[in-house]
Amino acid sequence: MWRDVVFWACAVLAVGAAVAVFRVDSMARATFALLASFIATAVTVLLLDLAYLGVLVVLMMVMEMVVMAVFMVMYMMNPAGLMPMTMVHNQRGALAIATGVFLLLATGVLVTPWPESAAPRPADPARQLGEALMGDRMPTMIVLGLALFATMVSTVVLATDRGRYDRFGDRLDRDHPHDPTSGGLGR
């Protein structure tokens, strides 16, 4: 009973906050309306007894939305909403695409013959899910993880403005690095 109440409250809050993202006229408000929507969604995940996934969604989304607020404010022409701003562009096209995708997915949900199982729910569904997803593909996942990490490191190396040759000289023989700001270690 209380699960139903919490679910519907969170469902309404999630959709309401998601609508608010496109109705408010300030980038900061839009970002945190989106965060509210994500947190309401996380509570519905918690209702499925997926504690780790649910709490992780809260943790990651708070961090991501704060970072996103910084970037969105940076990129928007009118971040603070001091002039009328709209989050919606190409309204007709967007409406058609959104309706089409929604109908497609909703049809998929209703038409798919979902398997029914009489087996009791495992004690730790998150673990079962992880094993089902990765059990016999662990080497692939490990290689994938390394590849992703290497990509991140190389992106940062390519994007960085000043490398070690700028800091320690062409022969890397400076005792103290040349940095625009002082402070930190060994200076």
Binding site: F32, A51, Y52, V55, L56, V62, M63, V66
Partner: peptide
């Protein structure tokens, strides 16, 4: 006594980032 109590604690601490930014903004 949540099964993921340690993660829960960290998730709530991180809300401070959002809070400080919001108060600043």
């Amino acid at each position: 006594d949540l099964s993921v109590g340690v993660v829960w604690f960290n998730a709530m601490e991180v809300v401070a980032w959002a809070a400080v930014w919001l108060v600043g903004w």
